[in-house]
Design a protein around this nucleic acid. Sequence first.
DNA 1: ATAGTTCGTTGCAAAAAACGCAACGTGATG
DNA 2: CATCACGTTGCGTTTTTTGCAACGAACTAT
Lengths: 292, 292
Amino acid sequence: MDQKALAMFSHLSQSLHFAKTARAHHISPSTLSRAIQRLEDEVGGELLHRDNRTVVLTDIGKKFKIYAEQQLEQWHSFKQSLAEKQIELTGKLHIYCSVTAAYSHLPPLLERFRARHPLVEIMLTTGDAADALEQVQNQSVDFAIAAAPEQLPRSVYFHHLDTIAMAVIAPTMACKVQQQLSENVLTWSKIPIILPEHGAARKRFELWYRKKQQGKPMIYATVSGHEALVSMVALGCGVGIVPQVVVDNSPVKDKVRNLANIGEIEPFELGVCCLNQSKAQPLIKAFFQAIS
Amino acid sequence: MDQKALAMFSHLSQSLHFAKTARAHHISPSTLSRAIQRLEDEVGGELLHRDNRTVVLTDIGKKFKIYAEQQLEQWHSFKQSLAEKQIELTGKLHIYCSVTAAYSHLPPLLERFRARHPLVEIMLTTGDAADALEQVQNQSVDFAIAAAPEQLPRSVYFHHLDTIAMAVIAPTMACKVQQQLSENVLTWSKIPIILPEHGAARKRFELWYRKKQQGKPMIYATVSGHEALVSMVALGCGVGIVPQVVVDNSPVKDKVRNLANIGEIEPFELGVCCLNQSKAQPLIKAFFQAIS
DNA sequence: ATAGTTCGTTGCAAAAAACGCAACGTGATG
DNA sequence: CATCACGTTGCGTTTTTTGCAACGAACTAT
């Protein structure tokens, strides 16, 4: 009966789909199933009737949905009312940010934080996403915004922000690549590909390409920095793999197009990470409070 | 941030005393301390300022108190609104009840339960409190109302109802006992004592008497059934030990008086107990829902 | 003074709760 | 008929919670 369980129920009562809600909250379906069972136990009745094919809210469930959302709303406004009375924090907060995330995800976070703690000096370092964890573990920075690695080190705390979909893009202009793509049988090994130098996006590509079993890819270029990659694709150099969000924000997005039906590329998770031991520090604690 | 934690905070914010609130909720002070720490962590600020001598609500604490009590109230009224729409349960519910508890604690419980489930047939068996657990473990009854034993068997679930204070009572009429009690130096070993045959009350007496270190007690009579005991005391046979609640409800309560300043007798815990494995049964579940 | 109390907190080990994985049963789909 | 999608459950592991004992601080009584 904590906020988390109520939020999950609220989401589920809209989606009526355990797997989707579980994904949205980054838990396994079984965990969600049990969380709902716990709620039903506490309420003392069935909240959702599930008959192996469909999920529907029961009468009790409908009432509880209202209750749950009222609850969440009240908790939120309670926190809000406290935020106004907070003592002013001062000091420096050193943030490391992957270029990818810097312009898409950092601004709203910083905005919320600065609104509450205007006296805190923010030092922003941008760099390669792959180095983010290292920077955090070095204690060179207080925290970083980066993709979640496959294996999160024990000492690092990761707070999820967003799920980043990957996109395969091609130029829209007439060029050799365009021609190859329009052939009936796509021969991937002959299509020039432009890749990020390393990092999460690169790993996602390798995984995706291996599934195609079409021999070695023809790598036209590797680029450090996703934005430049979009430009190269726009110029007609080849097909590129980048996070969708980079495409959406690119000034040349009209000159590239997404390729569909070419197999799913696994998205990656973007989040804020810091050392577990640093979570208690006032500034870092305040930051997490502000953004969550 | 569950109902329990909020209730504890609410109580604590009134008592401003960790030990008292912990006792009231049947947990250790350390558990309470940590529960409050968890709340403070979730809220993101100190709720109660404690300086090793005093406990006071902070500003945030005052706000949270309002929030918490609103929460509890809403939860309660939500449950209330559901209770009206409950499906009718039918069947038999077999209750074993110690005589002591039968007239003091059972009626309000049954009343609440019957109001919601009028079709359930209730079978009440009264008997010695000491046999209650056995009856439950035998599955002779669905549940029992009885004193908590020192060692609760693993298989048995115990739901606390009340803390029962013990009383030492003497006749008010002029008699030999009365005379003995008015002497300057009380010689306990010469005062006739009337005791319950066995059970929690008897054990409490033995503990209490041992502390006095006055040799063997002079046991005038042992009685099975507390009510009869009060009568014997009223008749002037001796001094008796019974739960205070028995005295209060006795028809002869004017003919006995409490002895004070004779050392504390440890109270015992009265509650509802059933087999852990039976808790899931609809009728038993409904009963616990109705009474809690 | 000083020994004894009363308080709330913390280290620690044990118990309980929550979690994810894998397997399952059940309808729908092709 | 095989396959798929979906929610649930058994099971071993990890995380969280709990009570006991010990502690330090601050009053009280002798």
